[in-house]
């Protein structure tokens, strides 16, 4: 229990690091935002996530890579004087004066159970697992909600007519934040539909890459057997050392 507390403290400190060490006296520009209805004065130029941390919130969930890739920090907001309900990733969007905002930590949805190696590459497969795609009213709200600027409505329409290639390509950059599903009046879980479409397309629709085929053959021939055996036999100290000395791409 003691250890766990320490870890939580470490995470909280890391989260705060973006705003700690700032002297309020040095900040020239301030904005007022409303987090779940309560007003806070925060330095201008912070992201929503940083601003919430500055205001004292600790992210124990709803935060991940802090770089716009993981899809964990979905947020919704309205700007002062505007009727539009906006959606974004909190780590990628800067606060503006008069913003009303809340985090959406999770989009409740059940992912269908399937085995892509056994499913038929037919339009009916997508409908069988996600029949609600037939409820799409083409309102385009999902597309407007997507922080990745994907054509979400169009890929749901692709899915409905069984166009795996187009559904897979249009949904390729999905980060599974779930904002589309939260906003959908037809109660579709678009991100799960896209995932199934991409899995099926990857398995049945795309040409097998030549390089992958070659590499699989190399693995089958046993080229890496020795390396694996060595790694599996290594003790903790050796693994730690190898990790520290590993080849890395430049940060």
């Amino acid at each position: 229990m003691e250890d766990k507390k320490d870890i939580m403290q470490i995470i909280a400190d890391a989260n705060k690091s973006v705003t700690t060490g700032i002297d309020s006296a040095d900040i020239e520009h301030w904005v007022q935002i409303h987090i779940m209805g309560r007003a806070y004065k925060v330095p201008a130029g912070l992201t929503i996530m940083q601003a919430m941390e500055y205001a004292g919130y600790k992210f124990i969930t709803s935060a991940g890579c802090r770089a716009g890739f993981c899809g964990a920090c979905a947020t919704m907001y309205r700007k002062k004087g505007e009727y539009q309900l906006q959606t974004a990733m909190a780590c990628q969007t800067r606060v503006e004066d008069g913003m009303y905002l809340v985090q959406i930590p999770f989009a409740p949805a059940q992912e269908a159970k399937y085995d892509v190696t056994k499913e038929s590459y037919a339009a009916s497969t997508l409908l069988e697992h996600y029949p609600e795609i037939a409820r799409c009213v083409a309102c385009n709200t999902c597309t407007k909600a997507c922080p990745q600027d994907l054509e979400v409505m169009d890929y749901i329409q692709d899915a409905l007519r069984g166009d795996y290639a187009s559904a897979a390509e249009r949904s390729f950059d999905c980060i599974m934040c779930g904002l589309c599903a939260i906003r959908c009046p037809a109660e579709i879980t678009q991100f799960n539909v896209g995932m199934l479409a991409r899995r099926m397309y990857g398995r049945c629709g795309m040409a097998e890459p030549e390089q992958a085929k070659k590499q699989l053959a190399v693995i089958a021939e046993g080229k890496y057997e020795e390396d694996f055996k060595r790694l599996l036999a290594a003790d903790l100290a050796e693994l730690q050392q190898r990790y520290a000395e590993r080849e890395r791409e430049a940060d």
Binding site: L127, P131, A134
Partner: peptide
């Protein structure tokens, strides 16, 4: 579900 045309599902829903 494997047989029904989309037109049947969309209209029923």
């Amino acid at each position: 579900m494997r047989q029904l045309p989309q037109i049947a599902l969309v209209s029923a829903f």
